[in-house]
């Protein structure tokens, strides 16, 4: 399908035509930003760079009911069907994160909750033009205009958005939008490509991640883990706000005679994450927990699924209260061997 253009003044029409209730868009809330449904007035903010809370929360929410039950009975009630969604304005790194996590959730067994949401969602990405200081997507296989995991890639051309259609799902959206979208020509694509290249040039941080997955296992007992984890507070900011972190805990919550089994985000940086009933903890201190976090992203996940489970969005660096910097850790890893 040809590339299309969405004039900026038509964004409202576009949202309305496709059905506002379907959209999940980046929004600035009280003190943070996240993806949320549109409510009433168009409150989408496509100028935000990465949202504070990554869009993973749409696909595996922080709290998800697996089923409901009544105490003393055997019947279970599964949650209802999911509606179609259009995730508009997702940044390429976050979209890559989801296609990374897909590998895990559709592995063995397939996670029906996650899968059904993914199937129902169309991803309309927005190419990055102003990467932040701690963005390093180009070091881990991505880029400010990466198309992985996207159905449409939008590029801000100033007075309009260029829609580069990548999949059938994306085509469907464009057809539905009808004449709200206008045809684009080659000069638009060239302009967009220039913007993409410029953006890639603006990324200041990075690391050569090629040999890291290989090296990490040899550093198991290295003293760097103690050093980098000394200031760690053991909070969940880095993992909860990481677009690829996907660990969860299953809890039964009972109120009176009604109960539900739900899963909630969990973090490998918490002490209770690996705590055994016996009181033994195989990861007794923050040294082991930090080591696990880095190893999981740059070694275990690579072994199993062939990709690094880090997309270089920079959230963990931006939000760490004590300046634990994953790029700094990785460069120490490279030095240590």
């Amino acid at each position: 399908m040809d590339n299309m253009k969405l004039p900026k003044e038509k964004v409202g029409d576009f949202l309305a035509k496709l059905g506002k209730e379907k959209f999940r868009v980046p929004q600035q809330m009280e003190g943070s930003s996240k993806f949320a449904p549109l409510n009433g007035e168009s409150n989408a903010d496509f100028t935000l760079s990465n949202t504070t809370v990554p869009p993973k929360s749409i696909f595996y929410p922080q709290t998800e009911t697996l089923y409901r039950y009544n105490v003393g009975e055997t019947a279970m009630e599964a949650p209802g069907e999911v509606d179609e969604m259009i995730i508009m304005g997702i940044r390429p790194c976050d979209a890559r994160a989801l296609s990374t996590v897909d590998k895990l959730f559709t592995w063995d067994p397939v996670d029906p909750y996650y899968k059904s949401r993914r199937d129902k969602a169309t991803m309309v990405g927005l190419a990055c033009q102003e990467p932040r200081t701690n963005c390093f997507c180009t070091s881990v296989g991505g880029g400010p205009a990466s198309t992985e995991g996207l159905d449409i890639l939008m590029t801000d051309l100033g007075d309009s958005y260029l829609f580069q259609v990548l999949t059938e799902k994306g085509e469907k959206i464009c057809q539905e939008a009808g004449d709200i979208l206008v045809k684009s020509d080659d000069s638009d694509v060239q302009a967009a490509e220039k913007l993409h290249n410029d953006a890639a040039q603006k990324i200041v941080r990075g690391i050569d991640s090629q040999d890291i997955p290989e090296k990490l296992p040899q550093l198991w007992e290295s003293e760097i883990w103690k050093k980098v984890s000394d200031p760690c507070l053991g909070c969940g900011a880095c993992t909860f706000l990481c677009p690829t972190c996907h660990c969860f805990d299953i809890q039964d919550e009972v109120e009176g005679l009604e109960g539900r089994r739900c899963r909630v985000w969990d973090s490998c940086m918490f002490k209770e994450y690996t705590l055994h009933t016996s009181g033994h903890n195989p990861r007794p201190s923050r040294r082991e927990r930090t080591r696990n976090r880095i190893n999981h992203k740059y070694s275990y996940f690579v072994d199993k699924f062939g990709v690094i489970a880090c997309v270089g969005c920079g959230r963990c660096i931006n939000l760490c209260p004590v300046n634990i910097d994953i790029l700094n850790i990785l460069s120490q890893v490279k030095e240590a061997l």
């Binding site: 809330m29 009280e30 003190g31 943070s32 922080q62 969940g236 900011a237 993992t239 706000l241 209260p321």
Partner: peptide, 16 residues
Amino acid sequence: EAQFSSCVRCYSCRNV
């Protein structure tokens, strides 16, 4: 309500 709803329960406030 608006403030508490945005909490992600990372417990950094507790840990720090």
